[in-house]
Amino acid sequence: MARGLGYYIAVRALMIIPTILVLYTIVFILLRMLPGDPILAVAGTKNIPPEQYEELRRLAGLDKHPVVQYFDYLWGMLHGDFGVTLATPRGTPVSRYIWQRFPATLELTIFSFAISVLLGLATGTVAALRRGGMVDAGMRVYSIVAYTLFIPWFGMILQYIFGLQLAWLPTSGRLDPGLTVDRVTGLYVLDSLITRNWDVLKSALAHLVLPSITLGIVLSGAYTRLVRNNMVDVLGQDFIRAYQARGVRGWKVAWYALKNAFIPVVTLMGLQFAILLGGAVLTETTFSWPGMGTFIVDRIEYRDYTSIQGAVVFFALFVGLISLIVDIVYALLDPRVKY
């Protein structure tokens, strides 16, 4: 307490560095343990003369000792350079892929996030207000079922019903073919709003519906539980009783309680981000969403060391920053938190 918030933030921010270092190290070691290398993976069944193979390895920097490779890449990252791709297309800056893919994942993430929080708040509030009854039990079952839904399975069923049978919604990709939008942020919904391109906005939103509902529902279970339990606590507190005594009733009280129950939800949001990317891999695979999850999986297949390292570190950085912000906000909000 004595050292103040600034100190806390600084320490908390510095803590991100070792986290990223550890992750980078784990990923680096894992990748070098994988059999095969990017050169052979690309050559596949084609003949590749030994001299050319050595040359390609040299160009990719793979002839150097792994320790040298480790520090070279680390040094590059400190300067904001995530290296160049090693598998086809070779030599493209990894940052370009992150630049292309990250907004896709972010957009999906934001929408799933919004859906899961809204669903969680709604179901959790209802459960808390009717606690102990059938509705409460029902919401509890909902939270467990939602959590245990297997994403590809659930996604496929949605695709089948809404994409194929009813033909209401597109089932893959981010935009209808032929549509393009000037890039401002890379988030198509935002970009189309900024550039007032309503066709793109419509198409982007339509493409977002199924994947974000899939991921959103799966993630909402955790919020349902949390909101319910917090609401139950808050509803039992004195100030709510006071409101009720003053004659404030029903949904109005719920609204006050909800606002107070929101603090822990903020914390969960920070934690959920990591889980979200895991879910995003399966969601992106099921819906052909060109995001970071599918990028990493594709690149593992071709042993594209630099791409995977870069993508993982970038994402870890992002997750770290999000949780940092959540912590700061939390510290600001809740005087009980000691820093």
Binding site: T19, I26, L30, L34, A274, G278, A280, V281, V312, A316
Partner: peptide
């Protein structure tokens, strides 16, 4: 452990399974 925990489980598992 915290670093591992903060990282998406599935991606970690994918990398290890591939190894």
């Amino acid at each position: 452990m915290d670093s591992m925990y903060a990282f998406p489980a599935l991606i970690l598992a994918i990398a290890i399974a591939a190894v």
